[in-house]
């Protein structure tokens, strides 16, 4: 089976139609279980008290922020190198999802920081690099919006995504370096002791729920983009015939 097997939009639509309801259902179930475990079952941390529960949404959201960007970059590479017709749609569809998770990671991190650090925001290395990642997402989406020709926009956005992907580790490294130079006076480390299994399970379930959510929305958004592309092609044909 070649990489172009799923390139056929009709085949993709059929497959997506079959997967999407299951992914949606899985999202709901996992989210309910995850929330129950995170809010009720998981014990409060002996140091951070109940605030540790914020971790169960903050950490998976931060993971998803990174995961979506990786997905976006890989899809962009596939679009540029193999000219896979669905790849740039996948990249475009994943961007708002990634941006939302990045936003959530920032907000929940900030809410967690208030009781921990006594302030809503510290220029901690992790929050700072997530903030920059958020800007990268915004730039990517803005570039898609700004170029009218869909094919050109896709290629330009793909180039940007790859340039960004090369830069993410550099930015991360530079921000870490900067942070060690300007270590804030009193910062409670968030890592704490090695994580206990009673906390690991809700964390994993929430992470899985977010993944399933990503798959569901990705498929729906890709199908929408495909439909829009078809509509545009039909309208163009009407104009010229």
């Amino acid at each position: 089976m070649s990489i172009h097997y799923f390139a056929n939009p009709a085949r993709f639509t059929r497959l997506a139609g079959r997967i999407q309801p299951w992914a949606g259902g899985l999202t709901a179930v996992l989210l309910l279980i995850g929330l129950y475990m995170a809010l009720v079952e998981a014990p409060a941390d002996y140091q951070q008290g109940d605030t540790v529960r914020i971790m169960f949404v903050h950490v998976p959201a931060a993971w998803m922020a990174m995961f979506c960007y990786t997905f976006l970059a890989v899809a962009s590479a596939v679009a540029l190198i193999w000219r896979h017709p669905l790849a740039d749609l996948a990249a475009k569809a994943s961007a708002p999802i990634g941006a939302s998770f990045t936003f959530l990671a920032l907000v929940t991190g900030s809410i967690w920081g208030k009781p921990m650090w006594g302030t809503w925001w510290v220029w901690d290395a992790r929050l700072t690099s997530v903030l920059i990642l958020f800007f990268l997402y915004l730039g990517y989406m803005a570039l898609w919006e700004a170029i009218e020709d869909g094919q050109k926009a896709g290629k330009a956005a793909a180039v940007l995504a790859l340039v960004g992907a090369v830069n993410v580790p550099i930015i991360k490294f530079s921000v870490d370096w900067w942070n060690t130079l300007h270590q804030p006076a009193s910062v409670l480390r968030m890592d704490g002791p090695a994580i206990h299994s009673s906390m690991l399970w809700p964390l994993l379930i929430m992470a899985l729920a977010f993944k399933a959510y990503f798959v569901t929305l990705l498929l729906a958004r890709m199908r929408m983009e495909l439909n829009l592309r078809r509509i545009r092609a039909m309208r163009l044909a009407e104009r010229t015939s």
Partner: peptide, 20 residues
Amino acid sequence: FIWPAFGIVLIVMAFLWIAS
């Protein structure tokens, strides 16, 4: 702190879901 954190996560996720 905890309820707003979980609340905003659910609101943003639900919003994007419905919009998509």
